[in-house]
Design a protein around this nucleic acid. Structure first.
Lengths: 197, 197
DNA sequence: GTCTATACACCGATAGAC
DNA sequence: GTCTATCGGTGTATAGAC
């Protein structure tokens, strides 16, 4: 391969690694399989990254940060709180279904981070929670509701549901059941709010 | 080590493997680290199991089957539906907190099964769902309620919550927040039932 | 049945030619 | 900058002595 800027190689290797993990799992993502997927030599890997651990670190920080744990509903006006929550969770489910192996890769990376870089996983989940808080406050405001429980608790419950939804759907891929669960979950979470004074 | 029945060696190796996975992760559970933990020679491993894959298979089927995904409340009488659900989820949280590394090992094994033995994971989750159905029906009956959504859907929602609870708590180990989420989750799920006719 | 010794594949990482 | 060749280490699995 011709002279390529280091940054470009790093990006190519990160993308290749993600493809390998999606297709065959983190344990299959050796430096050799990664460079094979990226179409470059083993030495080029160590020119772009000092070690495999460094690449996995970058993968965890950069890729998990882009992960969507909850997708905001497209349209706010004229929808009930339950509908907004249903659309948000449904959007996440669609995201999951559109590329299951990518989400499975995310799960493996999170799991790996849990053991090797626990503080990174913690920071990431704090960020997911902040996004959920913003979404719940927006939804309540637009429908004239107030949360009966502290918003961070409701947000955490929502995050708990997306995580659980990911795992259970990945296990049996039952689309109809997942949709039913999304509706029940939205209804259940909405019951934690009441009309604003 | 003196002559030992094969079955005994298998049990010792399974227990040793679980300890290794709990402490250092599935990727660290090589045949060498396993036999070191079990205090036997490498050859003894291959006398008891034909391969490492066979042991992991046995681990997934036998160990995941014993996993408690939802713990039934101890006492039924005189408790509201929300209380029963809170106690059930709280019991699971206590189970998780009592040995986090064991639950992390379960998560890694489930994840591995998802890739290598998807049908085993699926069967296991079907079993978890059956247990949750039984628990929810019992709770509703004892408190004079009926479920407003199909019981399998509510059961699946409960399973979704225990899975999500496991992940989120393992990430930040926030006991107080987890307890709040358990209460909110119980209240939310209870809202899916109504007094029986 | 149980052990030591070993075969052989793959791992991460680097040396050194170009 | 990029490559091929290779080092040292670890992985699974087995041969063969006892």
């Amino acid at each position: 391969m011709a002279h390529t800027p280091v940054e470009e190689r790093r990006k190519a290797l990160i993308a290749a690694t993600l493809r390998v993990i999606s297709a065959r799992g983190l344990s299959s993502a050796s430096t050799r399989t990664i460079v094979a997927e990226a179409g470059m030599s083993l030495a080029s890997f160590h020119y772009a990254f000092t070690s495999r651990d460094e690449l996995i670190d970058v993968l965890i920080t950069e890729v998990l940060a882009k992960e969507e744990k909850a997708i905001a509903p497209a349209e706010l006006v004229g929808r009930s709180l339950t509908e907004l929550l249903t659309e948000g969770l449904s959007g996440y489910l669609a995201h999951l279904r559109s590329d299951p192996s990518r989400e499975q890769a995310m799960l493996e990376l999170t799991q790996h981070a849990l053991r090797e870089r626990p503080e990174l996983a913690r920071q990431q989940y704090a960020e997911y929670t902040r996004m959920a808080v913003a979404m719940l406050e927006l939804a309540a405001t637009h429908t004239g509701h107030e949360w009966s429980v502290p918003v961070p608790v409701a947000a955490r419950l929502l995050l708990t549901m997306t995580d659980g939804l990911t795992m259970t759907w990945l296990v049996d891929r039952d689309d109809a059941l997942a949709e039913d669960v999304v509706r029940a979950a939205a209804q259940a979470v909405a019951s934690l709010a009441h009309p604003a004074a």
